[in-house]
Computed example of a mutant assay.
Amino acid sequence: MLSLSYSSLAIVLCATAGHLVSAHTQLYNVAIGTTSYKRGEYIQPVVGPYLNPVANFTTNEIRCRNTNGASPQTPYLSVKAGSEFSVVWHRSSDSPSDNMVAPSHRGPCMIYMGKVEKNPDDIKWFKIYELGFNKDTDKWCSDVARDNHGRVDVVIPKDIEDGKYLLRTELLALHRANHVWGAQFYPNCVQLDVSGSSNKFLDPPPEFVEFPGAYKSDDPGILYKYWQDKGMNYVIPGPKVYPPTKPN
């Protein structure tokens, strides 16, 4: 029978923990066109281990992997409404060889915006991007982003109001989502100063949500039989994307 000393067991546990953390991810860069900005410039700092997911989405950490709204230490990046904006996930460097997340951590990507309020509990969030599972390619958003070295391109909506916003990026890993609290959330926030908008929302306006509050433990996109369903009937959690896609 194999036995381990306390010191040997500690080494094994540390190695296992290190392997698990190396599978996780963070928002590492944002970009406007060819100009890139690294973590620490306009991306908010994370409280605690910066690669760890948020398991309990009923806490304030689900907002940005911290408990705050706007960070006074983080400057705002000026962006034009209607312009393309890119987010890039990595683990520890912005090298193309530093994959954004382990291949086993598959799932959807979601991006929200919320106008900055003095009280972070008052921020109303709306979703501007989502990508789940593509049956034709057998790929989740995490696969698509990994193929693109962690990068996802979105458009800052034109039909919003000028002002200071938090742009909230989120990866959701589903490999353990078959039980309650098994889904792994990886949110991060960028501070933006938006100008050049129409200064009004379309009709109908966005479907606003709160964090925490937007997700429930039994949402079909959160409590999900990943290994059985394999994406075939997956429903992305949260509100509808704004602005709505125009019919062809």
Rank of each mutant, 00 (worst) to 15 (best):
V155I: 13
S95F: 02
V30G: 00
P53D: 01
M100R: 10
A81K: 04
H149E: 05
K200C: 02
N248H: 09
A183K: 06
P206C: 07
S142F: 11
R168M: 10
P75K: 10
I160Y: 05
S197T: 04
P72F: 06
C109V: 14
P206M: 08
S78M: 04
Y234D: 04
L166I: 07
M100F: 09
G150L: 06
K115T: 01
I156N: 04
Q73M: 00
I128Y: 06
E117Q: 12
Y28N: 13
K115R: 15
T58V: 05
V46F: 06
I128F: 08
A31T: 02
P220H: 00
V209P: 00
P206K: 01
S92W: 10
L172Q: 11
L13S: 15
A173G: 14
I222K: 05
K240P: 07
N233V: 11
Y42R: 09
L174K: 11
K230N: 10
S104F: 15
S5R: 02
L202C: 05
V241H: 03
G18E: 14
W89V: 01
F126G: 00
N52Y: 10
Y50T: 01
P49F: 15
L4G: 05
T34I: 08
G114V: 01
H90I: 01
H19G: 02
N148M: 08
F57N: 15
D153H: 10
L192N: 13
C189K: 03
D159N: 13
V144T: 12
R176D: 15
G132L: 06
N178K: 12
P157Q: 08
K216L: 08
L4D: 03
F126N: 02
W89T: 03
A17R: 13
D193Q: 07
D162F: 02
V46Q: 04
S8N: 09
L13A: 15
H24Y: 14
L202M: 13
E61P: 02
D229P: 03
N233A: 14
G69F: 02
V87L: 14
K164E: 09
I128A: 07
R63Q: 00
I222M: 08
H175M: 07
S8M: 10
V88W: 12
L167W: 07
S217P: 08
E61K: 13
P247A: 13
Q73I: 01
L2Q: 10
L192H: 13
I11K: 13
T58P: 02
Y112E: 07
N52Q: 10
K118I: 04
N68R: 14
L9S: 14
T25C: 07
